[in-house]
């Protein structure tokens, strides 16, 4: 039982990170219909930026978190404006390939600036453990769960009540109609990219403080794919929940079966989920008219 609880808590701790990245994917997909394959790389870039800030100035964790999320918003807006906006009106395949190109390029740039060796991340978070349900957890993991819940709540309030959030949902529902209703769709796209970069920056800081800064950090972005697929690409909260499901499945598979299954458990899950429900568990089925 204790083993099960330990697997569960660490699964949730990993899962919230996938959940955050999953939300970042879903925010972009929901409003623009594009999967940003460079999400993990944006996360890596912001995490390394955070490291640069933390090694220049002696700032506390929360200041670091806020300043990096603000920088991340500008990174997201920059990517949208320079690379994605000129592709508007092209096929989705082309835009997705552009994000893949970006992903490969960002990966290379990060290694060229900061080298390939792992760097311990000075997050400013306390490194000691606390006892939750009789299981030891790092305080940084507890913080990440709290921040995740806060993020989900903020996103819910934002999408439900704010003017921009409503415009985003309208755009996601039907782009042309939203445009006719006077919504600035281009601005909605830009906001979606900024918002998604912001969420992935939060994920990046926590991932860096758990795993150290490494040039293969971007792989977490790929591992968050199962989360967002399980939840359905167009469901922000489905993605958040999917993250926790995938985190748990990974840990149980590793703990009870072994074979280093942690690395691929998520991908096996999506193969099965997609065979049964092609649009994810919470995704909306597309009905096509010819």
């Amino acid at each position: 039982m204790e083993y099960f609880l330990a697997l569960t808590t660490s699964g949730i701790a990993v899962g919230v990170l996938y959940g955050m990245l999953g939300m970042a994917y879903a925010v972009i997909y929901k409003s623009t219909g594009v999967v940003n394959f460079a999400q993990g790389e944006v996360m890596m870039l912001t995490a390394y930026t955070a490291y640069a800030i933390a090694s220049l100035w002696d700032v506390g964790f929360w200041t670091l978190l806020i300043s990096v999320t603000i920088i991340a918003i500008f990174v997201g807006l920059f990517i949208e404006f320079v690379f994605i906006r000129p592709m508007l009106g092209q096929e989705v395949f082309s835009i997705v390939m552009v994000t893949i190109g970006l992903a490969v390029a960002i990966r290379a740039i990060v290694v060229m600036i900061w080298d390939a060796d792992p760097i311990p991340f000075p997050s400013g978070l306390p490194g000691d453990t606390v006892s939750v349900l009789g299981v030891g957890m790092y305080k940084s993991q507890v913080y990440s769960i709290i921040v995740f819940l806060a993020l989900v709540f903020i996103m819910w309030v934002f999408l439900r009540f704010s003017r921009i959030g409503i415009a985003m949902r309208a755009t996601a529902n039907l782009q042309t109609t939203a445009l006719l209703m006077g919504i600035n769709v281009k601005r909605v796209f830009a906001i979606a990219w900024g918002l998604s970069a912001m969420i992935s920056a939060v994920a990046g800081i926590f991932i860096a403080s758990v795993q150290d800064l490494m040039p293969d950090m971007w792989f977490n972005g790929l591992k968050a794919f199962p989360a967002v697929i399980v939840g359905g690409l167009d469901s922000v909260f489905g993605a958040a929940l999917g993250g926790i499901i995938i985190g748990l499945v990974e840990n149980y598979a590793e703990g009870y079966i072994g074979f280093n299954l942690k690395e691929i458990a998520g991908f096996i899950v999506i193969l099965i989920v997609l065979m049964i429900r092609p649009y994810g568990l919470f995704g909306k089925e597309e009905i096509e008219r010819v």
């Binding site: 000129p86 592709m87 082309s94 552009v98 190109g101 390029a105 290694v111 060229m112």
Partner: peptide
């Protein structure tokens, strides 16, 4: 030292430029 990274950067740039200007 960065040959692998240069290659990665190159693929990225080539993909983006071709899709943008010569799809």
């Amino acid at each position: 030292l960065y040959i692998h990274e240069m290659k990665g950067l190159l693929y990225g740039v080539v993909i983006v430029l071709f899709l943008r200007f010569e799809p």
